[in-house]
Design a protein around this nucleic acid. Structure first.
Lengths: 198, 198
DNA sequence: AAACTTGTGTTACTTAAGCAACAGTCGACG
DNA sequence: CGTCGACTGTTGCTTAAGTAACACAAGTTT
């Protein structure tokens, strides 16, 4: 679903986007996001400015892509799949969100108040996509649409993790996850006709 | 002479060559040169194989470029220029050759017997170019062509340094350089009509 | 020996990236 | 106030990179 469309893309397109993402990632290590211009990015990427606009509407779109990709990479590293036992998949997913948000907190350039909502929204939405993707691959009889479940659960997961991250003396992530799973379970199970292993 | 033609080059060309050079450099860290195919290089560079041949005749041509560039980079770092006092310039040049050959000796992938001559020849020839470039920027009345002087001196310098590198318990590079300069001086001074500061 | 396999060079054709120029926004500065 | 400077988007046209196909060579496998 992600790789299939990616692989048949023109190699130049893949490379250009990769270069732009790498450039922005590098610039974010030294500058704050609002101090980075499209010009800066394209220069660092050795790509023409016009080419940038052929791929992204603006630097926010690129940042969004960057966040999505890095988040998905984190998931892939941990082998998050909704193939095997689903109960563990949720744990791993939430744990990944924990780690991602902890990492994000450390980043100077992205925790600027003006951009935090954008970043949060992007991560959250990607959680939704991952959930929905999982539901579609493992269909279950429901009285409520999977889209609705995914949307609700993703907000819930993000909200819970966010709350955990903001806690001053927070419990270990592993411990928190067991609690969070219990919070999310009712959402996921809502409207399920026959008992599932979630 | 090098940067002028380089800067007005199409950015795509510059980038492609850079990618190919980086790819080969990276592959050389893990494989020997003869185990590396053009395919390997182009894959690592995210460049099409046909594009490779639009820039280089074969992988040797790319290797040559790689060597030239890295050698020139070394010189640039040390600010080797024939603008100021020429006597010091020769010292710095020879010292740079020392360091470069010492580095080269460590490299597994390039000290294979089959390719060593090629590498040596490339470095040597680049010394010649640097010398000739220096002569052309600081013209002196000579009865012998600058091309001839440059060619002779470059072989001499390389030969001396090579001998030094091969010595089991060699003296420090700085000490060797003072000797080498004395060896090279007569060549450079040959046929000079009026006394120069070389 | 014949049939694969893997890599090399080369080609005509397609597609994406680069360029230069333009109009537009926005803040800084005299 | 204006106008300067830096940045943003957008456009037709140019140029380089990508593709797939080919012939060829050298080494394996059957």
């Amino acid at each position: 679903m992600l790789h299939e469309e990616c692989e048949r893309l023109d190699p130049r397109v893949r490379r250009t986007r990769q270069l732009l993402q790498d450039a922005l990632r590098k610039l974010l290590e030294e500058k704050e996001f609002d101090k980075i211009s499209v010009q800066d990015i394209t220069e660092a990427a050795t790509v023409n400015r016009a080419t940038f606009y052929a791929h992204y509407d603006d630097k926010f779109a690129l940042l969004g892509e960057l966040i999505r990709v890095s988040f998905l990479k984190l998931l892939a590293q941990r082998g998050v799949q909704f193939d095997g036992g689903c109960s563990t998949a949720f744990q791993v997913l939430i744990l990944a969100v924990c780690d991602y948000l902890v990492e994000l907190e450390k980043s100077q350039s992205l925790s600027q108040h003006q951009f935090e909502p954008f970043v949060e929204r992007t991560v959250m939405d990607q959680i939704r996509v991952v959930l929905l993707d999982g539901f579609e691959r493992h269909p279950v009889e429901r009285s409520i649409a999977a889209e609705m479940i995914a949307a609700t659960a993703s907000w819930a997961i993000y909200g819970a993790v966010k709350q955990w991250v903001n806690t001053a003396d927070r419990v270990p992530a592993e411990e928190f996850v067991t609690v969070a799973v219990e919070l999310v379970r009712p959402i996921v199970m809502a409207g399920v006709q026959q008992p599932a292993n979630v």
